[in-house]
């Protein structure tokens, strides 16, 4: 019995074991879950160990003499101070550094992509279309402009949603919900393809019922 056959049997057992959760929580699901979590945690431990501690820290940082990596190494060591009650407070410094640096870096990224590009993409001549006078393009332009504007009104927190403002916000949430509906259908279809993939595995790779 080759390795691939053993692998297929284990994979089939785990696939069916996870699927038994559809009925209810049971011992086979618990075994599959424990194997999955244990293997994945072990896999990631080894991956992170070799990628970070060995390759980046030891090979590049120590042996390669790239001292700029020592900033990260020092922060990492400070994080380990959490293991001690006495000096555990030191671990707050690298956490503060990471959160602060990330907030600063993302400020630019989000401001550009979520604000400026969105505004730029929305501002258009409503009557403009690729084919002159094509009503579908004109309707599309109006939907984009109205949807973005009313969506922004919905996410405006400084004013109560009442009167005209409230009505516009309601239009905004309708736009959002219609978008969600479309996204829901699209994503469900992609999930179905994953299910089909597992069934295909069971029938072809494991049971050899289809080729």
């Amino acid at each position: 019995m080759g390795e691939s056959v053993i692998g297929a049997w284990i994979a089939a057992f785990l696939t069916l074991g996870i699927l038994t959760f559809l009925y209810k929580d049971n011992v086979i699901y618990k075994i599959s879950e424990a194997i999955f979590i244990g293997v994945s945690a072990g896999y990631w431990f080894i991956t992170l160990f070799w990628d970070n501690l060995y390759r980046k820290f030891w090979v590049v940082g120590i042996e390669g003499g790239q001292w700029e990596l020592w900033g990260g190494i020092i922060l990492g060591v400070m994080m380990l101070c959490r293991l001690s009650r006495k000096i555990g407070w030191i671990a707050r410094w690298p956490m503060s550094f990471i959160i602060g640096a990330v907030a600063g870096l993302y400020m630019m990224l989000y401001f550009t992509s979520n604000a400026m590009v969105q505004i730029r993409s929305t501002i258009s001549n409503l009557t403009e279309s690729v084919n002159v006078g094509d009503p579908y393009y004109i309707i599309g332009n109006i939907v984009v402009a109205a949807g973005t504007f009313s969506g922004l009104v919905y996410f405006y927190f400084s004013k109560e949603h009442k009167g005209v403002f409230g009505a516009t916000a309601k239009v905004g949430i309708w736009f959002i919900m219609v978008t969600f509906g479309a996204a829901f259908g699209y994503t469900v279809m992609s999930r179905m393809s994953l299910l089909i993939g597992r069934i295909d595995f069971l029938l072809s790779d494991w049971l050899k019922l289809i080729s």
């Binding site: 258009s124 001549n125 409503l126 504007f149 922004l152 009104v153 405006y156």
Partner: peptide, 25 residues
């Protein structure tokens, strides 16, 4: 509240921009 000011500016820009682009054509 500061972000809301940004949103208000964005709404005004979108409204003004769409009107200007459309009316100019």
């Amino acid at each position: 509240k500061g972000q809301d000011v940004g949103k208000a500016v964005a709404m005004m820009l979108i409204l003004a921009g769409v009107l200007i682009m459309t009316l100019a054509s």
